[in-house]
């Protein structure tokens, strides 16, 4: 806090501009979080009951050759500290290890799956944010009927679990109307229903938060000043109020990253799409520890990246938060 106060003082003689110092601080913090995630995964492996080699083999084929490979890769014949440090060293070089069940490198297993999952989650986030913005700006401060209808729709989309939304969407648009494919990941049409199933609950929550924020902003004195300049309500919402309403919405975005990743597992299963969700499911049920550890690390990377970006977004939206 005092740091922020000092930085705000005029005539500061810092070596780096404020944003660069902020970015440096955030990057350091992000690295620390990733290190903690990697270490947690490692400790989980150590604490799991049974021999480490047995755990790493999992349900896969078990031959003396494979066992020797595991011992060599993980350095299990060397001291604990060396094992841990060499694990980190491998991660630092982007080596996620080897899945002994699939007989392939973990990075190789994941590589083909990241794309479809990224497509799905980004599309869902897009659907959620767009719908929320449109509905909130269209209904904020409007008549009771419009707000009531939007509110009810939002409540429904939040309370119904995504898989049920998915099933209903499938039943109506694929089985009955035949507009969209039932499963698969070929082409944009196959993306529509899964993105809706995953994005609608986000639209619901985000829409409510945005409308609340808009309505609060529209009651502020500066809204009266803006109206007194001759602005239309629409201009008032888009030029002034929306930016204020975005602040709580950005905070929520951190939360829905988790929803998206978790929801992707179910949505991918339901719509028969390839993706990280499918891989994670198989790895967990098949006790393929190297893959599970890699998925944990990957989600940590996504989380850290998203939250860093959101912090930066906060500073762009609200200059008062710049230290």
């Amino acid at each position: 806090m005092t740091g922020a106060g000092l930085a705000a003082a005029p005539g500061r003689a810092a070596v780096l501009p404020a944003w660069a110092r902020f970015a440096a601080r955030r990057t350091l913090a992000a690295a620390a979080v990733l290190w903690a995630a990697a270490t947690t995964a490692y400790v989980a492996l150590l604490l799991a009951p049974g021999d480490t080699v047995d755990i790493l083999v999992g349900d896969g084929p078990d031959t003396p050759g494979i066992r020797a490979g595991i011992v060599a890769e993980w350095g299990l014949d060397r001291p604990q500290v060396v094992q841990y440090l060499s694990y980190l060293w491998r991660l630092l070089h982007g080596d996620l290890g080897r899945s002994y069940q699939l007989q392939r490198g973990v990075a190789d297993v994941l590589a083909g799956q990241v794309g479809p999952t990224a497509q799905l989650t980004l599309a869902a986030a897009g659907v959620g944010v767009t719908l929320a913005c449109v509905i909130a700006t269209a209904t904020a401060g409007r008549g009771r009927l419009a707000r009531g209808a939007a509110s009810a729709a939002e409540l429904a989309s939040v309370s119904v679990p995504p898989f049920l939304i998915g099933i209903v969407l499938l039943a109506v648009f694929s089985f009955t109307l035949g507009w969209f494919p039932v499963s698969g990941a070929e082409g944009a049409r196959a993306l529509v229903l899964p993105a809706l199933a995953l994005g609608l609950p986000i639209a619901g929550v985000l829409g409510q938060v945005l409308r609340g924020g808009l309505e609060r902003a529209l009651e502020q004195p500066f809204a009266v000043t803006a109206r007194a300049r001759g602005l239309t309500e629409r201009a008032l919402v888009t030029r002034h109020a929306l930016r204020h309403a975005l602040l709580p919405a950005v905070t929520l975005a951190g939360w829905f990253t988790g929803t998206l990743l978790g929801g992707a597992v179910i949505t991918e299963a339901l719509f028969g799409r390839p993706g990280l969700g499918q891989v994670a499911m198989r790895a967990v049920t098949g006790r393929d520890m190297p893959v599970v550890m890699a998925v944990v690390l990957l989600s940590a990377v996504v989380y850290v990246t998203v939250s860093t970006l959101l912090d930066l977004a906060y500073r762009v939206i609200d200059p008062r938060t710049r230290g």
Partner: peptide
């Protein structure tokens, strides 16, 4: 059409009459 051009409104600053962002 009249707001701002025919009559300007000055509100009390302390209440936050300027958009803080």
């Amino acid at each position: 059409r009249l707001r701002g051009s025919f009559a300007g409104l000055v509100l009390q600053d302390a209440l936050g009459s300027l958009d803080p962002l």
